[in-house]
């Protein structure tokens, strides 16, 4: 959008501005390269054979492209005692992340809707407490959470992990939705009340359809956090329910004999792919959602 306006008055721009612009672009390009370098090394290394890694340079392109390391990482490599690759753990992560993201987003939406549009006594206090929850470091809750999960009979299970992530996510999701919904005029709720709609009807028919941008933001945020989480994953899982991040750690650390760098790299990329995918698919809504509300009151 802004590009149009900029190219429009381009003829009027003088030389020094042009130089400045190119400097800026070069600098940004440099930063991009800096960030892309590790990814480049990871991808190339994962496509090399162990032989080539040992003899070749770190940044060289593979002489012979092979997907053996990927296959090994996915279904053969050893995580501790078992040797079935990342696959089962990857599915553990999916089974944990998808419901946790869904539930936390839905609860956040309802919470945000109540706090922003159905002002009640103590609403601000509750909201502040939830905000406070966002800033509690993970480490602090480890012991009490372990105890609670034990009492609930969820210790070491995937539902237990879902529970932990939902609890931890609600603060953020509520914040997102509340900030989005306060920008929606309260007259909308009033009009719907006069039309005869109740609490959930208004939420469902009027607020949810308006929420796509903020849903996308929340989903990306939650998905990234939960998928990439290691601490909760390693603390509250047991053999068989570990998420992919924990398995990845085990692969890299359980080196018996030769260190298989290509397999490690392939495994790391596999573990990172879903979050990457989510960004690529929903990224443009992410930017839009983050700035929504600030543009139009």
């Amino acid at each position: 959008m802004t590009d149009f306006t900029q190219s429009y008055d381009a003829p009027r721009r003088n030389y020094s501005q042009l130089v400045l612009r190119w400097l800026l672009f070069s600098l940004l390009g440099l930063f991009a390269l800096f960030y892309l370098m590790p990814l480049f090394v990871m991808v190339t290394t994962s496509l090399k054979s162990l032989e080539e890694i040992r003899t070749g340079s770190l940044v060289a392109l593979p002489r012979e492209v092979t997907f053996d390391a990927w296959r090994t990482a996915w279904s053969e490599t050893c995580t501790g005692v078992k040797c079935e690759g990342l696959k089962p753990y990857f599915w553990n992560s999916v089974l944990m992340t998808v419901p946790a993201v869904f539930i936390a987003t839905l609860l956040g939406a309802v919470n945000g809707y109540v706090i922003a549009q159905w002002r009640f006594k103590g609403a601000n206090l509750i909201f502040s407490l939830m905000l406070f929850g966002c800033f509690i470091p993970f480490q602090v809750v480890l012991l009490p959470m372990a105890r609670s999960l034990g009492i609930l009979g969820l210790a070491g299970s995937i539902p237990g992990l879902i529970f932990v992530h939902v609890i931890y996510g609600i603060g953020f999701t509520t914040l997102f939705f509340r900030n989005y919904y306060v920008t929606i005029p309260s007259e909308l709720t009033k009009a719907a009340k006069v039309d005869g709609a109740g609490f959930f009807r208004i939420f469902w028919s009027i607020f949810l359809p308006l929420s796509l941008p903020i849903v996308v933001v929340t989903v990306i945020w939650q998905f990234t956090n939960i998928w990439n989480d290691f601490l909760f994953g390693v603390s509250f899982s047991q053999a068989g329910t570990q998420p992919v991040t924990v398995a990845l750690n085990n692969i890299v650390n359980s080196t018996t004999g030769v260190k298989e760098y290509n397999v490690d790299m392939a495994a790391a990329i596999i573990a990172a792919l879903p979050t990457l995918l989510v960004y690529v698919v929903a990224g443009k809504y992410f930017i839009r959602g983050l700035t929504a509300g600030s543009v139009k009151g």
């Binding site: 005029p185 007259e187 909308l188 009009a191 719907a192 006069v194 009027i206 359809p209």
Partner: peptide, 15 residues
């Protein structure tokens, strides 16, 4: 048994 017209009209934006 009332109907109301609001100052901002309050039309449902997605409908």
């Amino acid at each position: 048994d009332i109907a109301m017209v609001f100052q901002s009209y309050a039309l449902y934006p997605t409908m």
